[in-house]
Design a protein around this nucleic acid. Sequence first.
DNA 1: ATTTCTGCAAACGATTTGCACAGGG
DNA 2: CCCTGTGCAAATCGTTTGCAGAAAT
Lengths: 157, 157
Amino acid sequence: MDPGHHHRIYEFLESKGLRKTSQRDAIIEAAFSTTEHYTADDLLLMAKKVDSSVSRATVYRTLPLLVESGMLREMDFGRDHKFYDPNYVDHPNHNHLICLDCAKILEFEDVHMDTLEICISKRMGFTPTGKVVRIEAHCDELRTAGVCKRRAVAAVA
Amino acid sequence: MDPGHHHRIYEFLESKGLRKTSQRDAIIEAAFSTTEHYTADDLLLMAKKVDSSVSRATVYRTLPLLVESGMLREMDFGRDHKFYDPNYVDHPNHNHLICLDCAKILEFEDVHMDTLEICISKRMGFTPTGKVVRIEAHCDELRTAGVCKRRAVAAVA
DNA sequence: ATTTCTGCAAACGATTTGCACAGGG
DNA sequence: CCCTGTGCAAATCGTTTGCAGAAAT
C-alpha cells in the first residue's frame, strides 16, 4: 500500500494532539491495504493479522478518527452494518452501483453527476459539500448470457 | 390523507394472505398522515394517537410490510436510526438534499438525474431499478443574510 | 376451528463506554 | 511524570423474537 496514507493520517492525528501507537499503526495499515469495502469487524480481523494485540474497542475508537481525517468514508448500503470505503483518497467523487444479482459493489465517477449536484443545489439556494449516489441495478450480461463475468471485477471504473 | 393508501396496502396484504387488523389500520393511517420523515418510534407515537393499543412490536412488524408494498421507503440519512419516507407514492423518483445548517431535509425531483442514472448504468452494462441520491449542502441565504427562511418549507420542490 | 396477530418482556447484536493499567511524549 | 491510549467486560439502545392469549376468517 501507499505509505503516504500513514503520513497523512499521522499529520491529522498530530494536529489533534493524538499519539502514534502500534495499534493505530496496525489499524491504519490494514484499513488501506485493500480497495474493498469492509465492516468494523472485518477491519478488526485484518488489523489483528498485522498486530494481534489490537482489540475491537480500539478499532471502534479509531474508525471515527479515520473518517474525520477524510481518508475513510462511512457508507450506508442499507444493510445491517456500516461499511467503510478506503477509495475516497484516490477517487474523492466516486459513486456506487450495486448489482442486485451478485451483490457486488462497483464504483464509478461521472462528471455530469458532479455538475448536476452543483446545479440542483444552486437552484434550491444551496452550496453543496458532497453527495451520496447509489444506483441499484441488474446485470445485463446475466440476463442475456446467463452468466455474470463481472463478479471478479469490482474496481473503480 | 388519501384513503387510497389504505386500499393499496390492504390489496397488498390480502395478496400475501395477511389480515386486516385495527392495529395495522392505525399504523397505516398514521404512516400516511404526514409528508415528514419519521423513525419507527415516531410512528409508534403517531399510531398510538389513533389507537392507543398499538405496541412497539407491531410497529416494527408492520414497517417491513409497508416497505415491501412499495408505499413506504426506508432511508439511511447517515444518522443513528432508520428513517421512513411516505412521499414515494406521490413522487417515486424524488431525491434528498440535506441542509447542514438546519438539518432540514428537502426533497427534489430532477429529470436529468433520472436520465443520468440510466445512461451510467447502461454504460456499465446494467439496467437500473432505482437510485438513492443525497446531497449535503449549506444554505446560501444563511451565509449571505444570516437567516434561513427555508426552515419552514421542507416539501417536494 | 384454524391460523394469523398481538402485547409483553426478554433476547439480540453492533457499537460505546467505565475502569485500571500500559505506554507514548 | 503526566496524560493519552488500551484491553476487558459491562452497558447501551434500536430492533427482533418467543410465547400465550386475542382476534380474524
